[in-house]
Design a protein around this nucleic acid. Structure first.
Lengths: 115, 115
DNA sequence: ATTTTATTTCTATATTTCATGAAATATGGA
DNA sequence: TCCATATTTCATGAAATATAGAAATAAAAT
């Protein structure tokens, strides 16, 4: 990943509506969500939502797929992976114990009851 | 973590100099780096660097410590942990296999020879 | 106390980003 | 074809952010 892609991604996540969109879609997993439903869920006007979705897609954080009249949006897990590995590249100056807690914290707890 | 903190963090990382600062400090681990050395390494003027360091500290991504005349900066691993867990909260709609590759990708490879 | 080095704060200008209304495009149904 | 629904594109004024010069602050050395 080049720095320009990473900048686009962080810039995309640095705006409230877009961060809410992303976090909402994170919870939806591969089910995703239609643009209109996102607009309803977050109470954002369609054109504003659309502009923000474009920014997230161009940043490599979301992908989309037309389904009839709707367009369905999903988190792009590969984009996410590239971004985080770019950010934490060559981490910790040789001391894994520093960054290991970061990684275990974000381990996927889907389906677990407690944490 | 509240959304405002996360927005501040992503906003901080969405600017080239600041992203370079953060990535440089990621590689330094607990050794950290003095402000002046960061300025030299990235070829940024001291006042510009200082303004950007303030933004990163306020975003919870860096911490600092005076050492004689220098001020030394470090990545704040706990801030990082909060940020990533906020971003990926309740992930994947119950399908861990979706986000697991993201996590293994960023696992700390410090000291390993190959990937 | 004065000087030197390291970093920050103040202030102004230039640039970027934001949400919106209005219009356009795409799909599906009658 | 004509209409309704779903979403995007365009243009714009308002707000936020970035950079740098100049001055200020903090610590160490003389």
């Amino acid at each position: 990943m080049e720095i320009k892609n990473a900048l686009a991604a962080f810039s995309a996540l640095s705006q409230q509506t877009r961060l809410e969109i992303f976090r909402l879609l994170v919870t939806k997993g591969m089910e995703g969500m239609a643009a209109g439903d996102i607009a309803d869920a977050l109470d954002v006007r369609p054109n504003t939502l659309s502009a923000n979705l474009v920014i997230l897609v161009n940043a490599g954080l979301l992908r989309n797929e037309r389904q009839g009249r709707s367009i369905r949006y999903y988190v792009d897990m590969q984009g996410m992976r590239f971004l985080l590995s770019f950010l934490l590249e060559d981490c910790c100056g040789g001391h894994p114990e520093l960054c290991q807690p970061v990684i275990s914290e974000i381990s996927c707890h889907c389906g677990e009851s407690g944490g």
